[in-house]
C-alpha cells in the first residue's frame, strides 16, 4: 500500500540531519523541513530525457499462483546507479532477471533504449550472486574467452583482459584457476569479466552477498571507483540497506506479497561514501524500520485497505524518535 513517499523521506532526513529537536511534527515544521537545504534522501523526481531502461506496469506470476511482481514501473536514466532494495521474496531478483532477458514477465513491457527486451544479451550484462566463472579457464582466459566470442582479435582481447585484471587489482593471479582463488578474488574476476565486455547496462544480483563484511566493503570501494570512472548504468539488487545507500544514486524500496515498489528515493550523500558515516547509518536505520513496518502491514491484513489510523502509526511513530535503537527488523541481522 502506498505511503506518501515525500513524508517518509522528510522524516528520514530529519533524523539524518539531526533536526529532531522539533519532532512534535507541526505543519510549520514540516514545511520548514521541505525547505531545509540538507536533504539527503528525497523522493525521486521525474527526469527529463529518454529513459535508458523503461519498466512499464510489469507483473509476473510463477505458476499462476505466486505473484512475484505486481504492476511495477521504473525508469532508469543513462548513468544512473539504481539499487533495488527489499526483503527476499519481494521480486527484486525476478525484476532483474527480466531486465536481463532470462525471464519474460507475464505482463507489462520492459524496453531498453526503446527496444523491447527479448533474451539475454552482452549489452545487458548480468553479474550473479556467485562468481559463475568457467572453472577450467584461468583468470585471464575467463576474460579473454567472452571477448574473443565478441569478435575481438587475440591481441585486443589479451590487452583488454590485462587492463581489467589490473583494475580489480589481481595482478599476479592471471594464470590462477578459479578454485585456487578466495571468494572475494573470484567475485573480482567476475566483475572484471563483466566490465571488460563494456556493456551499456550492468545488472547485478546481490553480487557481494556471500562475501564477508570486510571484503564487501572493499568491493564497494572498488565498484564506486569504477562507477565514478565509467558512469555505467547500473541496476543493483540487494537486501542490505547500507549497501544500497553506499552504492546507489537512487534506492527503489520494494515490498513482498505481492512484489511491488513502495518508495523511490534519491540518495544525495557525497561520494565516495563511507558505510560508517553517521548520516548514512541513520538513513539506513530509517529505511529498515520502514521496510519492517511495510512487511508487517502486508502480512497481517493483505486484502484490507489501510485505515488512516494504521497509516498514522506507521508514519508518526518513528518520527517521534521514541523507537528503541534495535527496532524489530527482519533485515537487521545482516548488518
Amino acid at each position: 500500500m502506498p505511503i506518501p513517499t515525500r513524508t517518509f523521506a522528510e522524516q528520514a532526513n530529519r533524523q539524518a540531519s539531526r533536526a529532531s529537536a522539533s519532532n512534535k511534527g507541526g505543519v510549520l515544521d514540516r514545511l520548514k523541513e521541505v525547505l531545509v537545504p540538507r536533504r539527503l534522501l528525497v523522493p525521486r523526481r521525474a527526469r527529463e530525457g529518454d529513459a535508458k531502461i523503461a519498466v512499464q506496469r510489469v507483473g509476473h506470476r510463477f505458476g499462476n499462483e505466486v505473484v512475484a511482481l505486481d504492476n511495477v514501473s521504473i525508469d532508469v536514466h543513462p548513468g544512473e546507479f539504481v539499487c533495488l532494495l527489499g526483503p527476499s521474496g519481494c521480486g527484486k531478483s525476478t525484476l532483474l532477471y527480466a531486465l536481463a532477458g532470462h525471464i519474460s514477465p507475464s505482463g507489462g513491457r520492459i524496453t531498453i533504449d526503446g527496444q523491447q527486451v527479448s533474451g539475454p544479451s552482452p549489452e545487458r550484462m548480468l553479474v550473479f550472486q556467485e562468481p559463475a566463472l568457467f572453472p577450467w579457464l584461468s583468470v585471464t582466459q575467463n576474460l579473454t574467452f567472452p571477448l574473443r566470442a565478441r569478435g575481438l582479435s587475440r591481441a585486443e582481447a589479451a590487452a583488454r583482459a590485462r587492463e581489467f585484471v589490473r583494475l580489480v587489482q589481481l595482478e599476479g593471479f592471471e594464470g590462477a584457476l578459479p578454485h585456487e582463488l578466495s571468494g572475494g578474488m573470484r567475485m573480482r574476476v567476475s566483475l572484471a569479466r563483466a566490465l571488460a565486455m563494456d556493456p551499456q547496462v550492468l545488472l547485478m544480483d546481490e553480487p557481494f552477498g556471500a562475501l564477508d563484511a570486510q571484503t564487501r566493503d572493499q568491493m564497494h570501494r572498488l565498484l564506486q571507483r569504477i562507477w565514478t570512472r565509467d558512469q555505467k548504468t547500473v541496476v543493483f539488487v540487494t537486501h542490505n540497506v547500507r549497501e544500497a545507500l553506499v552504492l546507489g544514486d537512487r534506492v527503489v524500496v520494494m515490498a513482498s506479497r505481492p512484489g511491488r515498489v513502495i518508495h523511490d528515493l534519491e540518495v544525495r550523500l557525497p561520494r565516495p561514501r563511507d558505510p560508517d558515516d553517521e548520516a548514512l547509518v541513520h538513513l539506513s536505520r530509517r529505511i529498515r524500520e520502514e521496510i519492517g513496518s511495510a512487511e508487517g502491514r502486508g502480512r497481517t491484513a493483505p486484502p484490507a485497505p489501510p485505515s488512516d489510523e494504521e497509516r498514522d502509526v506507521a508514519e508518526s511513530a518513528p518520527a517521534a524518535g521514541s523507537l528503541p535503537d534495535r527496532a524489530p527488523d527482519p533485515l537487521g541481522a545482516r548488518l
Partner: peptide, 16 residues
C-alpha cells in the same frame, strides 16, 4: 545452470 546462464549473458553462442 549458472555456467550456462553466464555463457548466455556473455553472449557466447554457436560452435564456440
Amino acid at each position: 545452470p549458472l555456467v550456462l546462464r553466464a555463457a548466455g549473458t556473455l553472449g557466447i553462442k554457436g560452435p564456440r
